[in-house]
């Protein structure tokens, strides 16, 4: 563990401020709590919000897993995992089942999470209404009044133009029947996993200075219409590495002749399945 820094990098005053925001977030599911986001030793867009939430939550006995688009071995995941190994001295893992704390960029692990685990999302744009209404004062009022007509109009316009709801990631959800929430840019394939998840879900947006949360066993409903119900992506073929047909697949270009393959985005789930088959 590095000397010269406080445990988990942040100072205690900052952690208390973030912890208070997290507790209010848990008490008001889906509501975006403003917080005094600090500058972190990595650029905005690399998980400054998630890292601050993780730093405020993590304890010496936690086992940390970090994923970036489902993978444990990409730059963002490796550097954040190493950051906490150095500043907090915690154990790290790539196994979903062994982790007590999982920081994620844009995926939910395929393996169902258990009660007691905490999932921390890195969020770029926390405000689901932002693309329809750029003014923060207005979106705040819309949330206050639960005035979400504009979001349904957006989804309806998709249907009118494309014949279906075209959003495939960051698909808006309604939390505990009250707040429309951005699930961060996870593929809509992952949305059903959020509903009544036994694990605690925390969201941190560093640049936008917002924290929000979904407590365990909380209703998270993807917005839709009776005649255009919510659907997740499907693929024609199973994963070409592990053969799974029920996971989210990435398209990987394998040469410059246009050859491509579809493989699991969740590297841990894919490897576990390959081991099991071998």
């Amino acid at each position: 563990m590095s000397k010269g820094y406080n445990f988990a990098y942040l100072d205690e005053q900052t952690k208390r401020m973030i912890r208070r925001a997290i507790l209010k977030g848990v008490a008001i599911p889906g509501y975006q709590v403003p917080f005094a986001s600090r500058e972190m030793p990595l650029p905005y867009g690399w998980g400054t919000g998630g890292i601050q939430v993780t730093a405020s939550v993590i304890g010496p006995n936690d086992v940390l897993k970090v994923i970036d688009q489902g993978a444990d071995d990409t730059t963002n995941a490796v550097s954040i995992r190493r950051f906490f190994a150095r500043t907090a001295g915690v154990k790290t893992t790539e196994r979903t089942s062994e982790a007590s704390l999982i920081q994620t960029r844009h995926r939910i692990p395929e393996q169902p999470l258990k009660e007691g685990q905490i999932l921390v999302y890195q969020v770029p744009i926390p405000e689901p209404l932002r693309w329809m209404e750029p003014r923060e004062t207005e979106t705040r009022k819309m949330h206050a009044l639960a005035e979400y007509g504009v979001m349904h109009v957006k989804l309806y316009e998709d249907i009118a133009r494309f014949g279906r709801i075209a959003s495939s990631y960051n698909y808006p959800v309604l939390v505990h029947g009250r707040y429309v929430m951005a699930p961060s840019p996870i593929p809509k394939f992952d949305n059903p996993k959020m509903d009544r998840m036994p694990a605690l879900q925390l969201f941190g947006a560093g640049r936008e200075k917002r924290i929000y949360a979904v407590p365990p066993y909380t209703s998270v409903k993807s917005l839709d219409f009776e005649d255009h119900p919510f659907e997740v992506q499907r693929w024609d073929k199973p994963c070409e590495l592990c053969g799974a047909s029920d996971t989210y697949l990435d398209e990987v270009i394998t040469d410059d002749q246009g050859a491509r393959m579809f493989v699991c985005s969740d590297s841990d789930a894919c490897q576990e399945r390959q081991k099991g088959a071998a």
Binding site: F7, E12, P216
Partner: peptide, 16 residues
């Protein structure tokens, strides 16, 4: 530092 961290986790577990 460690006492505050452990206390917060207890409160978070209770609130969640």
């Amino acid at each position: 530092v460690m006492d505050a961290t452990a206390m917060f986790r207890a409160v978070l577990a209770a609130m969640a």
